[in-house]
Computed example of a mutant assay.
Amino acid sequence: MSIQSLFQRFHEAIKLKRLDENAELVEKRDRIIKRLRDNLPRSPSFEVFNQGSYAMGTGIKPLNGDYDIDIGLLFDVSYRSYSPVEVKRWVYKAVSGHTTRVEWRRPCITVYYQQAGEAIYHVDLAIMAKEPYSNTLYLALGKEHSAKEQQEWQPDDRKGFIQAVESRFAGEDANQFRRVIRYLKRWKDVHFSSEGHAAPTGLSLTVAAYRWFQPTKAGYYDTSYDDLAATAALVSSIRRSFSQTWDTSLMRYVPRLSLQFPKAPNDDVFARMTNQQMQEFSQSLDQLSGWLDEARRTNTSAPLVRAFGKDFPSQ
C-alpha cells in the first residue's frame, strides 16, 4: 500500500466534519443559544456565528475526548458604550446553571458538558461588539473582577480569517491544505502537553499553514497529491523561519518563531510561548522533519506512526 493511501486513511480516522454536519455538536450549540435567547434581554440583539476549526474545516478528533466548540456572539451595541466585562456578565448570567460547570475566562465564557465528572464537550462563547457604521468587530477581554486597566475591547477579525482560509486554495489543493493542517494538529496533540502554553496552538499551526503551505503533487507528470512531501515542505518552511533571540536569563541565543495573525488584532500567534517552550517546539519540529525524511527514504510507515500516533496505519 502506498504512503499516500496511508495518509488518506489516517485523515479519515482523525478528521472532524464542520460543526453544522455534526448533529450532536449542533444540538449542544443550539441548546446554549436557546438559553441565551430565553435569558438575555430582547434588546440589544445579538448575532451567532461559528468560528474556530469547525468553521474552517480543519477540526480533528481530540485525544482526550473533550470536543471544543467555538461560537461568536456579536452584540448590536457600540463597544464605546459598555465595558467588556459588563457585556460578558450578560452572557455569564444567562448561561449560569445551564450545566454544572460554567467558567468566566479572560477571552470567553466557557460552558462544559460533563459525563462521570469528565468534560466531553465545551463551548467557548466569544463575546463581541462592533464599531458603529463600520464592519470592525471588537472582542471583550477581561475576567469577572479584572481591574479596568486589565479590561479591553480588542479589534478582532475572526470572521475575516475564516473567509481567508476558505479562499486560500480551491478544489483539491484546498483539500490537501486542510489535510496537512490536521496532520500537524494531531502531531501537536501527541507530542505536547495540553496544559499551559507548552504546545503551539491549533490556531498558530493553521496560520503557519496559511502563510507557508504549498500544494504538492507526486511529480511533473503525476498529478496525484503527495501529502508526505507537502507536510515535509511545510515543516521545513516553519523551521527556516525561526530566528535567534537573546535570552537574558539563559545568557545565550535561543530559537524563536514569530508569526503575525493576518487579520486584526495582527498579533504574534506564538507570543504566549516562553523561550524554553519555543526551544522545545523547535527541537520537536526537527524531530518531526527527521521522521518525515525517514518515511520518504525508506517508504515505510513506522516513522509516521512515531510522528502522528497510533491512528496512523501501519503497512
Rank of each mutant, 00 (worst) to 15 (best):
Y82E: 04
R297L: 08
K93S: 14
R105P: 05
F161E: 12
S45D: 07
L63Q: 13
P44M: 01
D173Q: 09
V95Q: 02
I162Q: 11
S78V: 01
D226Q: 14
V87I: 15
A119E: 14
Y225A: 06
E152K: 13
N135H: 11
G171K: 03
L139C: 11
A147W: 10
P44L: 02
Q315Y: 13
T110Q: 13
R240C: 08
I238T: 02
M278Q: 15
S146F: 10
T248S: 15
S43G: 09
K159V: 03
T216M: 13
D157G: 14
M1V: 09
H191S: 01
E280V: 13
P84M: 04
K88L: 08
T201I: 01
L74Q: 12
P44K: 03
K93Q: 14
Y113C: 01
L40F: 06
G65F: 13
S45L: 14
I162Y: 04
M128V: 05
V111M: 05
Q115C: 05
V123A: 06
P313H: 09
Q279K: 10
A198W: 04
K28T: 00
H145K: 15
V269T: 00
F213T: 00
Y121L: 04
D70P: 10
F281W: 14
I3C: 15
V77T: 12
Y253M: 11
A13H: 09
S96C: 08
E12K: 14
N50G: 13
A129Q: 06
Y121C: 03
N175L: 11
R252V: 06
A307F: 13
T245Y: 15
D227A: 07
S96P: 09
S194M: 12
S194R: 13
G196A: 04
S134Q: 04
T136A: 15
P132K: 05
A140L: 00
P84T: 00
L288W: 08
P155N: 00
G171P: 03
E144C: 04
R240F: 05
A209S: 13
I162G: 15
E27L: 14
H98D: 03
N39S: 05
H98S: 07
K159H: 12
Q287P: 09
Q154S: 11
K130R: 14
K143S: 14
S134T: 11
D227I: 02
P44C: 06
G52P: 06
P155Y: 05
E195V: 02
L205C: 04
R179C: 08
K17N: 11
S78W: 07
L125M: 03
S237H: 11
H11E: 10
M56S: 03
V26P: 11
A264T: 04
